[in-house]
């Protein structure tokens, strides 16, 4: 195992299972969709951005509707993520590599959850504790993802010109009764 995989506090390479018993059935479906998003994008682990992509992909939920009303839909966020990675690489003097050169057979190892996804779900869980049902809704997951001030999601949103705190407010206020 490379030294980078052993770093304390975990990271995208330090996998782990989620406390699924905390998740409502429909949120479990959201997490499964996030696993597929991560796999389709060649990611080594499910991160917060994959949770948000999954949530935006399934437009039926109130949180996705609230975010779409604020201008953030699946395509907009996917484009923002790509822009963030390209800008990050360029800041190190590296030009992005064409996608066709990165095509490979996906890894079959058990899906791991990166720290950002775990932290987003933990934040969502804390928010759900204030609900009567005490069970995590899509809106809580969205709020958990949007609560992070640093990392890929806030960078992608900032590059795309979104105000993260306004999106968070839109999710919270737009899903009060959901």
């Amino acid at each position: 195992m490379p030294a980078s995989d052993k770093r304390k506090g975990g990271g995208s390479h330090q996998g782990g299972s989620l406390p699924e018993q905390r998740l409502r059935a429909d949120v479990r479906g959201l997490v499964q969709l996030a696993v597929r998003e991560a796999g389709n994008r060649g990611a080594g682990a499910v991160e917060a951005e994959h949770l948000l992509l999954a949530l935006l992909f399934d437009r039926r939920n109130a949180a996705a509707a609230a975010l779409a009303a604020a201008g953030l839909d699946y395509d907009a966020f996917a484009a923002a993520l790509q822009s963030e990675r390209e800008n990050s690489l360029r800041s190190a003097g590296v030009e992005p590599i064409p996608a066709e050169r990165l095509v490979s057979t996906g890894r079959r190892s058990r899906t791991s959850f990166g720290t950002s996804a775990k932290q987003a779900l933990a934040a969502g869980h804390r928010m759900s504790a204030t609900q009567r049902s005490h069970s995590m809704r899509h809106a809580d997951v969205a709020a958990g993802v949007l609560a992070a001030g640093l990392g890929t999601v806030p960078r992608a949103l900032a590059y795309a010109g979104f105000d993260r705190s306004r999106l968070l407010q839109a999710v919270v206020s737009g899903t009060q009764e959901a």
């Binding site: 995208s12 990611a43 800041s91 190190a92 590296v94 590599i97 960078r155």
Partner: peptide, 9 residues
């Protein structure tokens, strides 16, 4: 972020 992007790449 560049470190993260380079690792992933």
């Amino acid at each position: 972020a560049a470190v993260l992007a380079l690792r992933e790449l």
